[in-house]
Design a binder for these strands. Structure first.
Lengths: 234, 234
DNA sequence: TATGCGTCGATTGTCGACAGTTTTGGCTTG
DNA sequence: CAAGCCAAAACTGTCGACAATCGACGCATA
């Protein structure tokens, strides 16, 4: 009788992992805008609402703090991170840094499968644009960019992108409808994919810079326009 | 009487912050090699040794997990992360991505002060090379690269570099003496600084690629040579 | 002898509790 | 009426404890 000596692709066991669950729950509340930036996140309140003890909540909060979604003030608790225009600018600066690298690497390692997947994603965005569901459209947008990072073949780079996207979702959730014309959102990605398929680094870099530069300006302006609550010093 | 309506640069209060303390303690133990890669980090043992309860230890461990120093296996505890050659390659790939961006940005925003500070750092490295203290030399090396990232003016990018450096220290601590000739270590950085001062992006990128490409190969080879423990499937 | 099973010890995940601190609300005072 | 002060409530940081789970060891069996 033969023994199983190699992985066969068994489905991952679903671990209860209360901490992850709490982290997900809090993340959802933040990106959906139910927890506004600057709002206090009381451990006790969260624990009560979820019917669990405070220990897992604390650990989840620390997780989200490292992820940039929460800010911890010692002895005072956790607060939803508020992003200034400068923060958004930093985030987009990093996105450009990361996605330039990712796009070039993805272009070099592009397989027919990933290429087809990217094209399918663009089609999906196109279809989504016809329905009036901004949140889903934005999510599909991130997914497209994420797929490029995934195709780059560097796991840490992908995690980095996820972190940036996670932080940006704070403001995205606030804004609600970001693009006036969702159809443009889908179209805007076509040249980027074509550049990646063509495989000329210069063109790829130019496309990434242009694409993210536009988004950077738009989101930056939006954030700046809707920042009525300026932080006061104690 | 006037109230203080703006920050005056008061010295930060030294918070006890047991969690940070534990995190520092564990980090030190890891980078100094007292906790070897793959070693189990028992919460109870750490708590006993530090004379505290397990709760702060748990939170510190989660912190280090997010930082990439520890790996958590649910229901089995925390382990010191072991870096394969592929991991080191990923890390250097990201360093190139980040430091290219940082060097160009630093070049644009270069002030006489930061320029002087960078030159002083190179002098320091040169002086350190004469003493036989590899650990300090490597630390000064990282500090130089860190200063470039700091000069880029993006706080998140700096934190990102710190994270990469922190992960790389796992293997650096293992290796002990990395460079055969520490004098070369100092000299190798001169062209990079000169390119930044000259301010031509192309030259800067080429220098970063060359400098980190060399380090990538050297460290990669070293890690590959001293990886006796190959992971076995269960 | 090698393989599979059952039990035991050790460790993790979670909980409730306590002490110290921050915040809040009301009260006093100018 | 505004500003400062005081006490109570709420919250955080830390602790010790208990149940569930995992790994190791020994034993039965082919």
């Amino acid at each position: 009788m033969r023994v199983m000596s190699q992985p066969v692709g068994l489905p991952e066991v679903v671990e209860s992992d209360l901490v992850r669950q709490v982290a997900r729950s809090l993340t959802a509340a933040i990106v959906q805008g139910r927890l506004a930036p600057g709002a206090k996140v009381s451990e006790a309140a969260v624990a009560r609402e979820l019917g669990i003890s405070r220990a897992p909540v604390r650990e989840a909060a620390r997780l989200l703090e490292n992820q940039g979604l929460l800010r911890s003030s010692p002895r005072r608790g956790f607060f939803v991170r508020e992003l200034s225009a400068a923060d958004v600018d930093e985030l987009y600066d990093l996105r450009i840094c990361v996605e330039r690298h990712a796009a070039v690497a993805a272009s070099r390692r592009l397989t027919p499968e990933t290429r087809a997947a990217l094209r399918r994603q663009l089609d999906l965005m196109d279809a989504l644009a016809r329905e009036d569901d901004p949140a889903t459209s934005v999510e599909a947008d991130y997914q497209f960019h994420r797929m490029i990072c995934e195709a780059a073949g560097n796991g840490r780079l992908l995690r980095l992108f996820d972190g940036l996207a996670s932080e940006l979702r704070i403001v995205i959730g606030l804004i609600g409808r970001l693009y006036d014309d969702p159809m443009k959102l889908a179209r805007a990605h076509v040249p980027l994919l074509e550049a990646i398929e063509a495989g000329r680094p210069d063109a790829i870099l130019a496309e990434v810079d242009h694409h993210l530069g536009v988004a950077r300006r738009e989101v930056g302006l939006l954030v700046q326009s809707l920042s009525p609550a300026k932080p006061d010093v104690s």
